[in-house]
Design a protein around this nucleic acid. Structure first.
Lengths: 337, 337
DNA sequence: CTTGCGTATGAAACCGCTTTCACAGGCTGG
DNA sequence: CCAGCCTGTGAAAGCGGTTTCATACGCAAG
């Protein structure tokens, strides 16, 4: 591996000059500049990233923590983050927190040790207080998928309460009155907000909240499957089911199928997130779209803006959007097959 | 941020000693050791990762390149890699190559610039020659999901030909004779091998290969959907459809549904990969399982072993396994609903 | 013809760690 | 009793960049 000094010797200049040419930090005579570039090419020189980091105190890395690398939900976010980060010539260091407060803390610690220039985190299990403390640390932190009133300008989030309301409202508009809900882990703000939106919509429609219609699960397929079974076992009739995310909805669909219940003829099902596979479920899942890729991009853009000391004007609050497909149907109606 | 020198002053020792305590690179008297540790704690000192990297020429990072961060396929692999890499106290720098030979090259270049200690790459579009050249470079490279005869010990892969054969054989065993195939991009070795396995199985069964039964697509849902439509439009009857991956199978399922064709009563569908959502499709997808998480782990383990100069004894070649669910049915039979 | 300024460049300090080398002191074995 | 060897420690030399500071040069202004 050639060093900057070797390049400088070959180009008959000092190391400083090579550095200046490469970084454009000071004017260099056109002639010198060409010699340097030629030497760089001939030796196929690559600056040593460590040395550069040490000198500049910049790693060029953005630490990213999400819950689960294998989930389509986080995958979409990562994709958005990656696009922006790499466009800025930086890279992502990713680690997952597995939705456990201790593990989340470890993941953040882990990333911080690598001295990233900024952190983009999706932390669900970490309490607000701890989050605020983290955000006071030296490295800029952007929160994704969560809103903290005290750090609003560093949060990219979706109005989940509105989303829950939208989902439930759509079911109500289709004539449903007995609407079950599979909630996410209620220790997560997202899950609570969606549940809250659900209650809100019921209330607005003059319907009483019935906790026998609610089952808490874990945002995973298997959990949704089991939650649906529990709901069914309670023998509290319902004509529609709103799941707090698509993954659980997929599980629920399976549980209903196994129980010989036709969706949407007998029970309508509503998801949340609009992950990629939602449209390929059968029936294609009606759901609430979260613009995950865009949210990832926004988070990255904010982080980069903060790093460069720019005042950021990126959109932070995203609105949920209903995506009507086949799994919800007007009550009483039956689709001809 | 305290430096090692501040710690050393506080503990009344030299910086060397602090370094030795922290890294365990040389024996240190128990008493000194305690003083150092105390000073570290009091100052909440964290070694500067850049300086350390510069001195040791080790970044502690493993570069990982996959095609698509949002796909369940790569997500599972990443998960496996992450587990091993973090257990070894290292981190992942990830970048995606988007299955395009130029972009793949860029992604690798990008990672190499960050001086990772090793590279784990899933490169589909890059030609063998270029791959071999990459593997001759200074940093250890592990190939995942692809086999190069000339670098076998650095490849973690699945026997895809066998997988294609297994899938097709299962359909044959269920009495199917007219079996269509949605292939992946034939520029990818994986896709070619699966197609080859398909031909192989047909041949073994004494059936002629009929290219009208094969449609090439892109490994994505949408592509599978369109490929299935094309196949249907050809009016070449078939009773079973083998898709080279689950994502395309999901799309195909949708196309068949739209065409009013019942799966599996009229046409059986076979996937490949067993990604998470496969079981939640309707009908639940019968598929070929690729142990993606394990393969990711194996790749990481090999990389770490090479780094430590250990002779690795990790399994490299994985065997496909059939997962029978509901989308394939014995020909002529009809499941009671 | 000075003076002064702007431009282009080099020397050297510095970033914070690891590691080599030297050495002191206490033991061991011949 | 002394040579030789451990064990524990410090000083200093890197690692390979960036950046500050000084300087040389050319040219315009006085």
């Amino acid at each position: 591996m050639p060093t900057i000094r070797e390049v400088s010797r070959r180009a008959q200049v000092s190391a400083s000059t090579v550095s200046r040419v490469l970084n454009g930090t000071a004017p260099v005579a056109e002639d010198t500049r060409r010699r340097v570039l030629a030497a760089v090419a001939e030796l196929s020189y690559r600056p040593n990233a460590f040395a550069r980091s040490l000198a500049t105190n910049r790693s060029g890395g953005i630490g990213v923590s999400v819950n689960d690398l294998a989930s389509p939900y986080y995958g979409a976010m990562l994709q958005g983050i990656e696009a922006e980060v790499e466009a800025a010539g930086m890279h992502m260091v990713v680690s997952s927190g597995r939705a456990d407060s201790r593990k989340e803390r470890e993941a953040v610690e882990f990333l911080l040790e690598r001295r990233p220039d900024a952190l983009i985190v999706h932390l669900e299990a970490t309490p607000d207080m701890e989050l605020l403390e983290l955000m006071r640390s030296a490295v800029p932190v952007v929160l994704i998928g969560r809103h903290l009133a005290d750090a609003s300008e560093r949060c990219v989030y979706l109005d989940n309460e509105n989303g829950g309301d939208l989902a439930t409202g759509y079911l109500l508009a289709n004539g449903h009155r007995r609407i079950a809900h599979i909630a996410g882990p209620l220790s997560f703000p997202d899950a609570r907000a969606r549940l809250q939106g659900y209650r809100q919509a019921l209330e607005n429609a003059g319907l009483a909240f019935d906790e026998r219609l609610v089952a808490e699960a874990d945002f995973l397929e298997e959990g949704g499957y089991r939650a649906a079974k529990r709901l069914l076992a309670r023998e509290t009739a319902f004509s529609a089911l709103f799941s707090a995310n698509d993954q659980m909805a997929a599980g629920a669909l399976q549980a209903l199928r196994e129980a010989g219940i036709n969706v949407p003829d007998e029970i309508s099902v509503m998801g949340y997130d609009d992950v990629l596979f939602a449209r390929y479920l059968s029936p294609a899942l009606t759901t609430i779209r979260q613009p995950l890729v865009e949210m990832g991009q926004a988070a990255a853009r904010i982080a980069l803006d903060v790093l460069d000391g720019r005042e950021t004007e990126v959109k932070r609050k995203f609105e949920p959007e209903l995506v009507a497909r086949e799994s919800v149907q007007r009550i009483g109606q039956t689709v001809a097959n």
